[in-house]
Simulated assay, not measured.
Amino acid sequence: MRPFISRIIKPWLALAATAAMVGATQQGCTKETPPAAAAAPAPTVPEKRENGVRVVELAVTEKGYEPSPVQLKKDEPVKLVVTRKTDQTCATEVVMDDYGINTALPLGQPVDITFTPKASGKLVYGCAMGKMISGVFLVE
């Protein structure tokens, strides 16, 4: 009976122990957002103004439109200065359907886009491919 346990059972036990260890180490590789990160406030964007108009600088990177979300105020004119810094995404323009904005973003050149948010809430903008890459303005 002893040779049976040594030759058959021990390898199975070693395999089971290895599988349990692999499962425990891969547990941290999930893409779930921790509750604390999901409730994080919008990043603070420095307040810049030109002639009473708020200026918000945005960059298009491999991560998308940054920073996002950005806090804006209803009925306060905004000038976006958007610079596309990558050619690795489809975000080669800014589209805001509700405001009739569809502006091309040449690589490495800042582009000014001026508009005034008319309604409070979440304003999603993005690329022309159905906003596959997008950013958010939170309008108060």
Results as ranks from 00 to 15, higher is better:
Arg2Glu: 06
Pro3Asp: 05
Pro3Trp: 06
Pro3His: 01
Phe4Lys: 11
Phe4Glu: 13
Ser6Tyr: 06
Ile9Ala: 14
Ile9Val: 15
Trp12Arg: 05
Trp12Ser: 00
Trp12Gly: 03
Leu13Ser: 12
Leu13Gln: 15
Leu15Met: 12
Ala16Tyr: 09
Ala16Thr: 09
Ala16Val: 07
Ala17His: 02
Thr18Phe: 09
Thr18His: 01
Ala20Cys: 12
Met21Thr: 06
Met21Glu: 04
Met21Leu: 12
Met21Lys: 07
Met21Asp: 02
Val22Lys: 00
Gly23Met: 04
Gly23Glu: 05
Ala24Cys: 06
Ala24Arg: 04
Gln26Leu: 06
Gly28Val: 03
Lys31Gly: 11
Lys31Ser: 14
Glu32Arg: 11
Thr33Arg: 12
Thr33Lys: 11
Pro34Gly: 08
Pro34Val: 03
Pro35Gln: 06
Pro41His: 00
Pro43Ala: 07
Pro43Trp: 07
Pro46Gly: 04
Glu47Cys: 01
Lys48Met: 10
Lys48His: 14
Arg49Cys: 00
Arg49Val: 12
Asn51Lys: 14
Gly52His: 07
Val53Arg: 15
Val53Cys: 14
Glu57Pro: 04
Leu58Gln: 08
Glu62Val: 05
Ser68Trp: 01
Pro69Ser: 02
Pro69Val: 05
Pro69Leu: 00
Pro69Thr: 02
Val70Ser: 00
Lys73Ala: 10
Lys74Tyr: 03
Asp75Cys: 03
Pro77Ser: 10
Pro77Asn: 08
Lys79Tyr: 00
Leu80Glu: 03
Val82Ser: 03
Val82Leu: 05
Thr86Gln: 11
Asp87Gly: 13
Cys90Thr: 14
Cys90Ile: 09
Cys90Leu: 13
Cys90Ser: 15
Thr92Phe: 02
Val95Trp: 06
Val95Ala: 09
Val95Asp: 06
Asp97Leu: 12
Tyr99Met: 06
Tyr99Ser: 02
Ile101Lys: 06
Gly108Glu: 12
Gln109His: 13
Gln109Cys: 07
Val111Leu: 00
Ile113Trp: 04
Thr116Val: 10
Thr116Glu: 07
Pro117Ser: 10
Leu123Phe: 02
Val124Pro: 05
Tyr125Lys: 00
Gly126Ala: 05
Gly126Cys: 08
Cys127Gln: 07
Cys127Ala: 07
Ala128Asn: 08
Gly130Met: 06
Lys131Gln: 11
Met132Arg: 15
Met132Trp: 13
Ile133Asn: 08
Ser134Gln: 11
Ser134Lys: 08
Gly135Ala: 10
Val136Phe: 03
Phe137Met: 08
Leu138His: 04
Leu138Ala: 07
Glu140Asn: 14
Glu140His: 09
